[in-house]
Amino acid sequence: MIKLEVQRLSLAYGRDVVVRDLTFRVMPGEMVGLIGPNGSGKSTIIKALSRVIDPYSGKILLNGKDIAKIRREDLARLLGVVPQMPLLPSTFTAFEIVLMGRNPHLRLLQYEGARDVAITWRAMERTATHSLAERRVGELSGGEIQRIVIARVLAQEPESILLDEPTANLDISHQVEILDLIKNLCLENNLTVVVALHDLNLASQYCDRLILINSGRVHAQGTPIEVINPQNIKEVYGAEGCVYSHPVNRLPTVLLKAGSSKHTKPGESQRS
């Protein structure tokens, strides 16, 4: 069982502190959403959790062990990442990209064996990408690339998955398809999942708990019902959001109203 703990984490680019004093914990089988406006620090937090950038202060613990002290290949066996808009070399085939997920399991002198090939193939079947195996990445659509990268994370066989806006630029059917897949993986395998999302409705539908970030600080954290309420939306986004409960599952749902932004003059905001 893997547990991800963030303790009083601050992150900075140079001397420019962008995330301050962040503390949260994710338990196995739990899907936690990072939500907040553009530039609030969601992607930076994902980068820090995967040790691409080092903390300015504070600690990130995986099963009680500081990730700064875990070797990179060991960390990659525990934790896989689906980056936002991943850049892939266009002449590699989809299969070759997914196979790269096996890297942390292989030694320097070891080549991918039958077992790695079989695992890669299963990961592609799980994400319905096996029919794309022979295609070059340059020929694939955005949604297909997103699924290829998720297959790569599965081939990595991690215990925890971090996703940075996995549904950006996808249409609604692909958004639901990808998040359903991740949610199922999380529940079936008892994974620890952290997902940065800008779409509040998707976050509300899929995440067990949400962390609302505003300019690098935690504004609220808790269940979707606790976090997504008109007051928080107004305070963080400055927009007059109308929060309703979803007609089927009662989860909070945000509907927007034209002319409700903070840039609108008071007289105009009542336009209907």
């Binding site: 990659a76 990209i97 890297n103």
Partner: peptide, 23 residues
């Protein structure tokens, strides 16, 4: 030749290569 697989993975960006366990 020992680092052939690492070179493959570094054809992704450096961030992804790190997340796949490459130093």
């Amino acid at each position: 030749l020992l680092y052939a697989r690492s070179l493959n993975i570094m054809q992704l960006d450096e961030e992804q290569a790190q997340q796949l366990g490459i130093n």
